[in-house]
């Protein structure tokens, strides 16, 4: 019932917004700016899809994103576990990590372009940098929040470090880690688009920059919608997974 009401009202609001948008230009509700119209945008989208123009770029973007993100997982999770579990590395690296975590890492773009080369390399690097810190920090916080009693329990049953890791830390950290991964997905996608737009390379971000520079607002909005919905659904998926994981935890 509640669920039903939520989607109906939400849907109605979206439809109202689209109608308002559709009539805004013909009725001159907005001055000067070209805001296009949803119907035109949808048509532009189908044109782009039909001509197949958009797919190679989408594939490139996704490839870059997936590479960078997997790299972030491979580095972020183990580092997070180590930093959460042991004091010395945490004390050593904390200031550095915090500085990097708070810094808008997209600002490193000009450096990355030179270090890793325009295109694939730089984009993967930005996605990695964007995604790795939320994952790492959340994982280490999650590990720190695990009740020490469990670790003591493993010790008193003569368990070794591997047992602690396998039976206490790993299962205990999963919900918090998922939060980090969800945040990382958002940051990674942002990094992907920034990088592609900055260097105007192939990929969906490059296309956005291209259409933006040629003032083709309709196609531009169509592409923005594609990338936004992509972000929306990915993050939503991650949110669902996260909720599922948390719920599983509560039942135990």
């Amino acid at each position: 019932m509640k669920r039903w009401k939520r989607s109906v009202i939400g849907g109605l609001a979206v439809i109202a917004f689209l109608i308002l948008w559709e009539i805004a230009m013909p009725l001159r509700l907005v001055k000067v700016a070209d805001i296009s119209r949803p119907s035109l945008v949808v048509m532009a989208f189908f044109e782009l899809a039909e001509s197949g123009e958009i797919f190679p770029h989408l594939v490139i973007s996704l490839k870059e994103f997936i590479f960078g993100f997997i790299l972030a997982l491979i580095v972020g999770i183990p580092f997070g576990v180590v930093l959460g579990r042991y004091r010395l590395p945490a004390l050593l690296l904390d200031p550095l990590l915090m500085a990097l975590y708070t810094m808008p890492r997209m600002a490193m773009m000009p450096l990355l372009v030179v270090w890793f080369g325009i295109g694939l390399g730089a984009t993967i690097a930005v996605v990695f940098l964007g995604a790795v810190f939320p994952i790492l920090v959340n994982t280490s916080v999650g590990i720190k929040e695990i009740d020490k009693i469990w670790i003591k329990a493993v010790h008193s049953f003569c368990g070794n470090e591997w047992d602690i890791f396998k039976k206490v830390l790993l299962p205990g950290v999963v919900p918090q880690m998922m939060t980090g991964i969800r945040l990382g997905v958002g940051r990674g996608l942002l990094g992907m688009v920034v990088s592609e737009m900055y260097a105007s390379t192939a990929g969906i971000g490059g296309q956005i920059a291209l259409y933006g520079n040629s003032f083709r607002t309709t196609e531009l909005i169509a592409l923005i919608a594609v990338i936004s919905l992509l972000g929306f659904f990915t993050v939503d998926l991650m949110r669902r997974v996260e909720e599922r994981v948390r719920r599983g935890r509560a039942e135990v």
């Binding site: 688009v193 003032f215 909005i221 923005i224 990338i227 919905l229 929306f232």
Partner: peptide, 26 residues
């Protein structure tokens, strides 16, 4: 809440930089 929810979450999860060229045009 229900009415604004879709917009908020879309903006929250979309890579917002993609709006940049639009802002420049506007």
């Amino acid at each position: 809440e229900y009415a604004l929810d879709p917009f908020v979450w879309l903006i929250y999860s979309a890579p917002l930089v993609s709006f940049w060229p639009l802002f420049i045009i506007w």
